[in-house]
Amino acid sequence: MGQRDNLDGPILSGAGLSRTYRLGSTQVKALRGVDLEIRRGDFIAVQGPSGSGKTTLINLLGLLDRPDGGQVLLEGRPVGDLDDDALADLRRDRFGFVFQTFSLVPVLTAAENVAYPMALKGRGGSDCRQRAVDLLRLVGLEARTDVRPDLLSGGERQRVAIARAIANEPEVVLADEPTANLDSETAAGILDLMRDLNAKRRVSFVVATHDPRVVERAGRTLVLRDGRIVAGA
């Protein structure tokens, strides 16, 4: 699973993905048999009303959750039988995550947040630090490397989150409403940054969003409604 040898096929795919949640005595079918493929360099916007299953799809594709039905395949290989540690290692090595609420580790500085996934992977301290600084420069935060998240603006935090997401050079970055908590100008900057990384580094992005600007700039748009893809599959 660690080899990246399937260059022509989809990097990540979902086949018949279903997920049902229990809310009290009610069962909520968040996804109902979703199929999709993500190839290197894709920039996919996942659109749909609240409750349509966007976040559930991101969670399943990012191996944060396990489907009730169907399977997630990484470079054509199913990951459903892997244990939690193996899934954690895959998330660390092959995926990047950007969340709506930024989700930085509050006790770490910007550079330390970016270095954290590299350190988890066993990369040396000074090497981690240097690469973290380089990545922060890439996202325009070279002057804020040693600042803790609580002293950063929303846009800066999201830039740190993006730098962290690409720290281990993942094939896919999964972003859940990355511009939702940002003002228009900052959101546009974040979108430009993601688009730039997508174009220059061939990192695939799957972005769950309500934001029409993301949809406008996406290479492909999937529309979800009631747990099914109704357009763009």
Binding site: D84, D85, A88, D89, F97, P106, P117, L120
Partner: peptide
């Protein structure tokens, strides 16, 4: 809780 979720999401093992 959310911080723990973040750490685990980005690849931290439960043991850590």
């Amino acid at each position: 809780t959310r911080e723990i979720g973040t750490l685990r999401a980005i690849g931290t093992r439960s043991r850590f």
